[in-house]
Design a protein around this nucleic acid. Structure first.
Lengths: 217, 217
DNA sequence: TTTTAGTGAGTGAACACTCACTTATAATAT
DNA sequence: ATATTATAAGTGAGTGTTCACTCACTAAAA
């Protein structure tokens, strides 16, 4: 069973921790509120109210408001994203690599859906990325890991077949990520109610395939 | 004389306003601090101190802290970006449209430099975009205007020549913007000291050209 | 003389955080 | 099993501080 939803992944990571039910509720509520109103505009009273605990309980486990944010972001980086990456890899390796076009189409469709089902969580992350460069660096390491796993052999194979351009894998992924985010981020920010996922996938795939497939000499 | 730096554009827009020297200093200081520490973490005392005025002066012209932010973002949207867009268009029309490749290369190089010389200002804008979808919508309108001007005829021409794919101009620009931001945003966030502009331009141009040029049937 | 710009000490509210106290859980003794 | 104690979890009124914002006053300009 795969967990495409970050909510579930985050709760799974909470379950692993030795926090009490109320402490977990604090983190859940914090995540919700940080996503909605941003870190600064969320008060510890807001958190206590939504989590249905007293404000003292909030501070029993976490000494400062910042520690709450850290407690949320830490598993995001060390667990949630690697886990999401692993599931992505698993799905990828489950299907045979038929062609570059199919490969790109799958990635685009998969990641657009991932982004759209986790809009709030991504918003918190993006907000934090802006005043915490360390996070982006750590995120980069997660991507590196993905690129060194099964993705590497797939890309190598596609390059050997002469289907995929002979650029570094990092560069290829940068282009893919940029293109997908070019569609996903505006939807998250605006936020658009009913995005046409099929159309978006088709457009992004068409462009990426043209940009990344090897031209015959 | 073109003003590639938003600082100069912003000060030019301040000069047009009927604000006193001290009020202008307030806006300048606010812009700096908002970029550095974010809107919420900047206090009105910080602003007064940096602007070398009393806190009362800050509130003589602007009734709330939010109004200060609005006063900064408004000219950004209505003046600075259109102005930057106009200069971009001017430079664009000054050169003859030799080929799709040259066109893309110019845009990429020009906009990467624009982004890199205005890192702080873009950071404020991005921060605000995240919790104010209206801004993104307005920004979208600015882009539409650019696309309806001289850029439209250039793209039309390239499409008639069969060099450029027959996609909507909005879609073409979305891909260009995404690709450029894919390089620029990480630099702004991290921030990387010495980005290799030549290499970045070459990579982005190569990818965009491959993705956007018309394949022979 | 009137109007506008600028000042900075002051104010009320909101907020992050604390603490004396209560309740629940677990460990140990009877 | 039951009572006793020890430890941890939870509570919410309270506190000190910070901050956005005000106002009575002064300085300058018109």
């Amino acid at each position: 069973m795969t967990l495409k939803n970050i909510d579930q992944l985050f709760q799974a990571s909470l379950a692993q921790s030795d926090l009490s039910a109320k402490q977990k509720a604090v983190l859940q509520a914090s995540l919700m509120l940080f996503a909605e109103k941003g870190f600064e505009r969320t008060t510890t009273r807001d958190i206590a109210t939504l989590a249905q605990v007293s404000e003292g309980t909030v501070y029993k486990q976490f000494k400062t408001k910042q520690q709450i944010l850290d407690a949320i972001l830490q598993p995001f980086i060390t667990q949630v994203f690697p886990q999401a990456a692993n599931e992505f890899i698993a799905e990828l390796t489950a299907r045979p690599v038929t062609s570059l076009h199919a490969f790109i189409q799958f990635i685009v469709y998969d990641r657009i859906n991932f982004g759209l089902t986790n809009q709030k969580q991504l918003k918190v992350l993006v907000q934090q990325l802006l005043d915490n460069g360390r996070l982006l660096a750590e995120l980069g390491r997660v991507f590196d890991k993905v690129l060194q796993g099964p993705v590497k052999s797939i890309l190598d194979q596609l390059q050997r077949q002469g289907e995929l351009v002979n650029w570094s894998h990092a560069r290829i992924f940068r282009h893919i990520i940029s293109t997908v985010l070019g569609y996903v981020l505006p939807i998250i920010i605006l936020p658009i109610a009913d995005p046409d996922v099929e159309k978006i996938t088709a457009e992004a795939t068409e462009f990426l395939y043209a940009g990344l497939h090897q031209k015959k000499a």
